[in-house]
Design a protein around this nucleic acid. Structure first.
Length: 927
RNA sequence: AGGCGCGUAGCUCAGUUGGUUAGAGCGCUACCUUGACAUGGUAGAGGUCACCAGUUCGACCCUGGUCGUGCCUACCA
């Protein structure tokens, strides 16, 4: 074995074998366990959030597989309508072509080609993470099977009246030329203006203060061109006399009424609001209440159309804004301009300002679907982890709005609806199906709806469509409902909620019984990772490493804002002057687990990854030690506890406890606690103590060959079990070492991933062995403390006396002399009678037991005095707080008896210890 | 405006029904290349648990408030 662990070769090697041999497919007859992957976009590249979530899903999958469950981690990708279409369009643009030039059919063909060539980048990256996904069942949301489920669902919802077509205001993206849903709109506060315009009153009307005009305030001057009313609050005395009167709409040669509506807040602006039903969601509602005309003034590009006065036609909305303001100013109707912060809605894909726009779209009526979905969470059929996300879910679901599902794109599931020349709608699987269903002659002209469905429509069906519902139900029947969904809070509404609704509706089952919501992965300063901040980390770079130049190039390529490139390059150079070392998949995964406490975002700390890389190396070297001492040596293949030493029994007991902790933590999704337990056990107990304790036994194997044989077995056995305990979290190193260790124990099995997970049984628990070894460790640490503090050279062998202990202490000394001598580097260690005088010594206490290291020629008396003084100080402050407690009558009266008793014992111990050290200190002085 | 989090060692984080001398990793200090490992070993330093009040015999933990900070949802023309 190499002296250090080299992850890269091992990772490729084992993943390939696992996949080729079909180990990821469900096997056996255990109770099924299933996770479906949140399908990554085909355009996607693996980011830290993916890395984190897949690490968790893989741990759950491998854990349950090893627990004997028949386990499936269902894989697949999402066609990601807008994102993918944009990628291919950009590519066409570079080639001097365009989507429109190609035409629909050729364009869609082009996207498929792109998908075949480039769409597997992310699936390769998932493999690098070690994900035990069943690739033989890989699905794509636009596969024939999944597409037919989409159609079926659409048609049935339509027939039930739960899908309908309607003309309404939608969120319109003027760049992408498509409607998007409310969720795809991101509103950010931006600096803008509030323009105050005067609208002249007609028929000699005046305001209460005598003006011949009303002043309205607006953030969108250009929409003036589509105004059809001015609204005031009905209770606003300033304007009540004007209700029902008319104003002359400036620039437009139209008169519009003044109406009263509760929507108007008299406190804001002037208390007068211009109403543009075609271009504002609130105004649209007001317009409906008052039966106002709806005048659309925009083209699909958000340029002014012919419904507006001539001078503005054809202008872009922002040009038009400028021109309207200028014209109003020239007309003397601009009162003032104020700075104003406002929320600007932008499309999450295009970044473009979204327009409310009146179009025909398809909607899902969700209220009826939401009710059972709410109940499923209320009654515990579905449980969120952590629980508080249920509140977020309920809040949204109880006020859910109809879902706009049509998109004016070409890439996606085309809406299965056809129109005749009169505009009547026919819904069916295909044109032929429609003709049969509705008994339409072949000559009857039909035209299919041009739109496609929102990508999230097919995602909502993901758990059951991937498992073969409704035709090939074998997997569906076995694995549905799935066990847990692992995802980020950002798509609870987009995806989780819609899955719950659709799955309940069509299968009558919940899609999953648990929803584990992960935190967001942020950078080490708690900043969100983003391209524009230049703090993106690619999980693969952390695995394989990357040079500074390459990393900088990566971070500054394809920038939306190229001017940031220099700043990002500088920042990158500061953060990673040497680039990034490769740490291997196992170390990266372990970092994710260690930071994954529930309900909290994680700040990704590369220092921890480095620490876990070191941990990998520690495991590697412990294995080297074990192999070196077992290969070609004599050892037993089984041993009962009677033939074991106390240290053998101790490490097995500690292992049993650790296993229990791991199981416990896994049921609570506390991956951080899992890694903590394993790390602590393996490094601080197995390596630091058991391996060290094994040395005196193995090196004296001629004196006691039987003991050495048992110790070799225990070394091997605990290592082998630890590897299995570790495997779900560090799949590669555990496999690599297990392949070498398992044969020595005559363990059969082709892979650790198919081996069984250690049981949480308590049969190995051995409290007395644990107590004995605690004593042993305490005494050794006491001696080492003196050695360290007194600066005694590590090589110098010491003479040590023990004194004043109990009979147990005495027995333990006899039983453990070999260990003490070796681990504390002693020349001798002897029991000293209470009555005999101790030589001048440095002292450590272990309980009442005095550990004495004679000073002669070794120890600086003053240093020992200082050390004792410090120790006494510590004891005193502890004693003070305890005595204070016990001196409090109320404490003694009210606290549970056992607590009081415990404190009393503690007080006594502290007093005795203080007294003992005090005596030692005085003795040093008096000499 | 409403809702949800978070604030513990220099940094990143644990702390599970209120009883610990408040823990880990990294970093730091000193010593050490001892026959698995310097990606290592041994020893050590380092915290008024954001602040204030309350409940309690007892609060990092429960309650109320303050400050700081992050996010989500929702109408402000």
């Amino acid at each position: 074995m190499d002296k250090t662990f080299q992850p890269q070769q091992v990772e490729f090697h084992w993943y390939k074998i696992w996949e080729e041999r079909g180990y990821f497919a469900p096997r056996g007859n255990g109770q099924p366990y299933c996770i479906v992957i949140p399908p990554p976009n085909v355009t996607g590249r693996l980011h830290m959030g993916h890395g984190f979530q897949h690490a968790i899903m893989d741990a759950l999958t491998r854990y349950h597989r090893m627990m004997g469950r028949k386990t499936l981690w269902q894989v697949g990708t999402d066609h990601a309508g807008i994102a993918t279409q944009m990628v291919v369009e950009r590519q066409l643009l570079q080639q001097g072509s365009s989507r429109l030039e190609l035409g629909r059919e050729a364009f869609v063909k082009k996207v498929w080609e792109w998908k075949e060539e480039s769409g597997n980048a992310i699936t390769q990256q998932l493999r690098r993470m070690g994900s035990s996904l069943d690739w033989s069942r890989e699905r794509f949301t636009m596969d024939a099977g999944l597409s037919s489920v989409v159609e079926k669902v659409f048609i049935e919802l339509y027939e039930e009246g739960l899908i309908y077509r309607g003309k309404r205001l939608v969120n319109w993206d003027p760049k992408l030329h498509t409607a998007i849903s409310d969720l795809e709109v991101q509103s950010e506060e931006e600096q803008g203006h509030l323009w105050h315009f005067r609208y002249p009153l007609l028929d000699g009307a005046v305001t209460s203060s005598g003006e011949t005009y009303v002043t309205i305030a607006t953030t969108r001057p250009e929409t003036l061109l589509g105004d059809t009313a001015v609204a005031v609050n009905p209770d606003d005395d300033r304007y009540s006399a004007l209700i029902g009167k008319q104003v002359a709409l400036p620039l437009c040669d139209r008169n519009i009424p003044i109406i009263a509506d509760e929507y108007v807040d008299p406190e804001f602006g002037t208390g007068c609001v211009k109403i543009t039903p075609a271009h504002d969601f609130n105004d649209y509602q007001v317009g409906r209440r008052h039966d106002l005309e709806v005048i659309n003034i925009f083209t699909p590009d958000a340029c002014i159309n012919d419904n507006a006065p001539e001078p503005f036609r054809g202008k872009d909305r922002f040009e038009a804004r400028r021109d309207v303001v200028r014209a109003m100013e020239q007309a003397g109707l601009l009162e003032k301009i104020e700075d104003h912060k406002l929320k600007v809605p932008r499309g999450d894909r295009s970044g473009e300002v979204i327009e409310p726009y009146l179009t025909d779209q398809w909607y899902v009526s969700v209220k009826a679907l939401a009710e059972p979905a709410i109940r499923a969470v209320e009654n515990g059929d579905i449980e969120f982890v952590p629980k508080n996300w249920e509140n977020t879910y309920f809040a949204w679901m109880r006020d859910i709005q109809d879902w706009c599902i049509s998109r004016q794109l070409w890439w996606g599931h085309r809406i299965p609806a056809w129109y005749d020349e009169q505009g009547n709608v026919y819904v069916g699987h295909s044109e032929a199906d429609v003709r049969t269903r509705f008994n339409l002659a072949d000559s009857f002209v039909l035209r299919q709806d041009e739109d496609v469905l929102d990508t999230w429509f097919s995602s909502a069906l993901w758990t059951f469509s991937t498992l073969g519902w409704p035709e090939e139900r074998e997997f569906f029947d076995e694995f549905h409902p799935t066990d847990v969904l692992v995802t980020g809070f950002d798509i609870i509404f987009f995806w989780v909620a819609r899955m719950i609704m659709m799955t309940l509706k069509f299968t009558g089952e919940v899609p999953f019984s648990k929803v584990y919501i992960t935190g967001l992965v942020r950078d080490e300063h708690g900043q969100k990772m983003s391209k524009s901040k230049g703090n993106i980390l690619d999980p693969i770079d952390l695995i394989d490493g990357i040079g500074l130049d390459q990393l900088t190039a990566k971070r500054t390529s394809d920038m939306m804002q190229p001017q940031l490139a220099e700043k990002i390059a500088r920042y990158t150079r500061e953060s990673f002057p040497e680039g990034i070392e490769g740490y291997g998949t196992d170390a990266l995964r372990f970092t994710f687990y260690s930071l994954a406490s529930t309900g909290r975002d994680i700040k990704f700390d590369l220092g921890r990854t480095e620490g876990f890389r070191n941990f990998c190396n520690k495991i590697w070297n412990a294995a080297r030690y074990v192999m070196m001492n077992a290969e070609d040596k004599d050892y037993v293949l089984a041993a009962d506890t009677r033939s074991m030493s106390v240290t053998d029994r101790w490490i097995l007991s500690r292992f049993a406890r650790t296993t229990t902790e791991v199981h416990q933590a896994m049921t609570n999704y506390r991956f951080d606690l899992v890694t903590q337990s394993i790390h602590e056990f393996f490094w601080n107990e197995y390596c630091d103590w058991y391996v060290e304790l094994s040395k005196p036994v193995l090196w004296a194997d001629e004196e006691n060959p039987e003991a050495a044989k048992v110790t070799r077995f225990v070394l091997l056995s605990v290592l082998e079990q630890s590897l299995r305990l570790l495997h779900p979290f560090m799949p590669f190193i555990s496999e690599e070492i297990w392949q070498r260790v398992a044969p020595l124990l005559q363990k059969t099995g082709d892979s650790i991933m198919l081996a069984t997970y250690p049981d949480a049984g308590d049969s190995a628990l051995d409290a007395s062995a644990e107590a004995d070894v605690e004593w042993l460790k305490g005494v050794i640490e006491g001696i080492r403390n003196i050695r360290g503090e007194m600066n005694i050279p590590p090589g110098r062998e010491l003479t040590v006396f023990l004194r004043r202990g109990s009979q147990t202490d005495h027995d333990r000394l006899q039983a453990n002399r070999q260990y003490l001598t070796k681990l504390a580097k002693l020349e001798s260690i002897e029991w000293l009678d209470d009555k005999s005088d101790a030589p001048r010594s440095a002292t450590q206490l272990h309980g009442n037991l005095e550990i004495l290291v004679p000073l002669a020629g070794l120890i600086d008396v003053e240093a020992e005095q200082n050390r004792l003084t410090r120790e006494i100080g510590k004891l005193r402050s502890a004693l003070e707080s305890i005595s204070g407690k016990l001196g409090n009558k109320k404490f003694v009266a009210n606290a549970p008896a056992e607590i009081v008793e415990k404190e009393r014992r503690r007080e006594q111990e502290l007093q005795e210890a203080t007294r003992a050290l005090q005596q030692k200190l005085e003795a040093l002085h008096s000499d």
